[in-house]
Design a protein around this nucleic acid. Structure first.
Lengths: 241, 241
DNA sequence: TAACCTAATATTGTTAACAATCCGGATCCA
DNA sequence: TGGATCCGGATTGTTAACAATATTAGGTTA
């Protein structure tokens, strides 16, 4: 279970709220494939509801940029591009750098302790110890999530946690993004916490920005490797065909 | 008959699209007062449409954080706080700083020329010459708008131009925000263009950030002045009552 | 054979009626 | 007099039928 989606009990009281949450989860986790067409009557019967609240939910998904609609044609799940992911990282670098700076100024001491304990938990986990799975799991997002929350800037929190966060999760589910940076990323997280505990805003921002930039570079290399691999396969296909 | 016709470019093909644009404009420009309740049947008859597309539009406005809805209670236009505006400026400082940096790297020379001409037009305008009205008019947003567009980062453009931009306009309409910074702001714009023309990303970002931070400080002082004025008036009322 | 026009079909957009829920005021009781 | 309860009005949430539009398949013609 993801650590911080809207409560699975569904806080939304209306049908549209609930179906919105469910659809968002289904899209983010890839149960509805990216780029696939969404049929309103089909979904309505599947969820056992009418098209009214479904359309309401679709409108919100469109506003969240998770689906694209064309009049009289239909709605499709957005298809994610590699360029878009890299742009997303640039945004995160700017915004989470800012969040780290603010957190260093404002985060309560008790919260910092709690954050340290979270990292301790991560450290204990076997997959992190083996350095094979940290960055791509929810734990990483959980860490970032807390720092964003500590920024105290409601609109920053809003944007990062309610929009970009879901997109990042969607990318992770879709691309996998196994990282060789697990140990490094974990160490960077520790440094960020230390900077916050030292009440050193500039340092916190600097490390956070570098942290995210490193992630971006890592993903970029991954894409390049995939591209060259695909190119080689294409050549092979051309030779055999 | 509608009070104003659809603007080209803004209009969607469906009723929900059009009513969404119209409602957003009405909210941003204060024709529907902030914090006021929105009655669905009332609006539906006023716009001559049914509640279906209206509800669709309301859902999108909610996703844009321009209205707040409570189930079985109704929708209200958001009420803006001074703290929120200051948070908005912090966000803009980070994001538009980034936009300026990217613009310095990527903006085509022809676009830079066009931007220079825009500033020349601003310079000619009487109100700017008098230093009484530049910052709070659309011209300022227009300048920032172009630099954001030049960043080439689709998601950054999306967020700044489709969400924050409307909120900033809403604040300007609501609070007025006459600025004593007109001449200074104009000069800062010129410096930003020069940095972009020099292909100096760091400088462009630096000046842009300082430019927005100065605006924020200016607004902050304005708020403080208003607060002390209100306090004094409150004392007077207490004395006379 | 390919291109173009036409019609069928399925999908979406829209509407109006129906049901569920909340808010305010009157009434009743302590 | 104070408070709690219940009822009425109004508003929103939901549903299913109706209308408009785009896509697709088929046939005709150059």
């Amino acid at each position: 279970m993801p650590p911080y989606t809207e409560q699975p009990g569904e806080q939304g009281v209306t049908i549209a709220d609930r179906v919105f949450s469910r659809l968002r989860k289904a899209i983010v986790e890839g149960q509805i494939p990216a780029g696939s067409k969404i049929s309103e009557p089909e979904l309505a019967t599947e969820y056992g509801i009418s098209r009214g609240p479904l359309r309401d939910a679709m409108g919100r998904l469109e506003a969240c940029h998770l689906v694209e609609r064309r009049a009289n044609v239909g709605a499709r799940v957005v298809s994610l591009s590699q360029e878009d992911l890299l742009e997303l990282y640039l945004l995160r670098e700017a915004l989470e750098g800012m969040a780290a700076r603010l957190a260093a100024e404002r985060m309560p001491a008790t919260e910092i302790d709690s954050l340290r304990q979270l990292l301790k938990q991560h450290e204990q986990r076997a997959d992190v110890k083996d350095g094979i799975a940290y960055f791509q799991k929810e734990g990483d997002l959980d860490f970032h999530y807390r720092i964003i929350q500590a920024s105290g800037n409601a609109r920053l929190i809003q944007f990062l946690c309610n929009e970009l966060y879901h997109l990042m999760r969607m990318y992770r589910y879709q691309f996998g993004m196994a990282s060789s940076r697990a140990r490094i990323a974990f160490r960077e997280h520790r440094h960020i916490v230390e900077a916050i505990a030292d009440r050193d805003p500039e340092m916190a921002e600097l490390i956070m920005r570098r942290h995210i930039r490193s992630s971006r570079v890592n993903v970029e290399m991954l894409f390049d490797a995939q591209a060259s691999l695909t190119r080689r396969q294409g050549q092979n296909l051309g030779a055999t065909g």
